[in-house]
Simulated scan of single mutants.
Amino acid sequence: MRHTPPGPVMLDVAGFELDAEDRELLAHPSVGGLILFARNFADARQLAALTEAIHAVRTPPLLIAVDHEGGRVQRFRSDGFTHLPAMRTLGTRYEVDATAALGEARAAGFVLAAELRALGVDLSFTPVLDLDFGASAVIGDRAFHGDPAIVAALAGALAEGLRAAGMKSVGKHFPGHGFVAADSHVAIPVDEREFDTIWRTDIQPYLQLGRQIDAVMPAHVIYPAVDALPAGFSRKWVQDILRGRLEFDGVVFSDDLSMEGASVVGDVVARAEAAWDAGCDMVLVCNARDQAIRLIDGWHPAPDAERSARVASLLPKQPFGDRTQLAQDTRYRDALDQVQRLTA
């Protein structure tokens, strides 16, 4: 087992278990994390074995993450995983009974994190802090609401639930992906609004939540009033605004460098260099093994102890327990009851 600090690259694997190439890539010093997808899940026992094998590759262990928000973005949906509501459900509920909605958001966060952690997953890229302007299909009901104050309140409650189960939170997609219709997976979205407008609306959840959010993922969206580069490649957005004006000192993840929204920067090495120079602590390369190999072969950033320590801080501090222990946890049973009533 290799003893190396976490590197700045998060990549993925194809199947239900690690093959020889997977192990070789995960042991590379440039790699610090792995993101899972639905294709990596057959059942609970298999997922637990996979995460155990991934964690065993390195010391300290690689950070294992997943996009597991609820609603249509939930990678694992069977064999004991609760079907979590779309965040819009909580926003609608808030309009009727704010106190109940906040409790349900905490419960959803706890269930989400507890079920993942019981099978060895460290982090979910949630909550979505984008505002629902009614324009973006790719965001849509992933957003809590169109009101920044309601988004901040519900996202903060969800983050409390995550934290109670020992999981950190990741706010996305900074400064906001909800106003543009284009999907950055397949297009290059451009948001023409002035900075002051974005500050008064989309940025407010980040400002109000402050250190309640442990990490941030910038959007692959261009805001030409601020910079010609997408936010995740922009020192103005990451260093001057997020780190500077908002005083955010947590982890910054790039969004997936293989997405079309990143293509304006160049090839995958140029994209990683631009994200790193902008201030991202970890870059993601998903669903593109050839690009992941090209990146770790061709990009050799100087070691950065501060950035490595930030990424390492996202690893859970203590084991959560397995599925048997989870079933006996009264906090989980109570939270599950709330979530199931919400989705009934």
Rank of each mutant, 00 (worst) to 15 (best):
D202P: 11
G32H: 12
V96N: 11
V226F: 10
R294Q: 15
A327R: 11
Q318C: 15
A56L: 12
T126Y: 08
T4R: 09
S254A: 07
A270E: 08
A113K: 04
P303A: 08
I150L: 09
D12E: 11
A105C: 14
A113H: 04
D19A: 09
R117D: 06
D329S: 13
R200V: 01
H185N: 12
P61I: 03
P5F: 09
I139F: 08
L11Y: 11
P189H: 03
Q318E: 15
E273V: 09
D22H: 04
L129Y: 01
S308K: 04
R235Y: 11
A225K: 10
G156T: 04
D132Q: 05
V186D: 14
I35A: 02
R307W: 08
D141K: 05
A14R: 14
V9Q: 02
D214R: 00
H68M: 11
E115F: 15
E194F: 14
I64S: 02
A335F: 09
H55K: 08
L63Q: 02
A344H: 13
N40Y: 10
G71R: 02
V265T: 08
L11M: 15
R243D: 13
E306D: 15
V283T: 05
Y94V: 06
L112Q: 05
A182R: 02
A335N: 07
R235T: 09
L158V: 09
H145E: 10
A187N: 06
L102G: 05
A344D: 10
L36D: 00
A53F: 12
P127K: 05
R341G: 07
F81D: 06
L315N: 02
F125L: 11
D130K: 04
I293H: 05
I188Y: 07
D255M: 07
H177L: 10
R45W: 13
S78P: 08
D255V: 01
H220A: 04
R88H: 12
A309Q: 14
K317N: 13
L229A: 15
S313D: 08
G279H: 08
A312E: 12
R58A: 14
D277L: 15
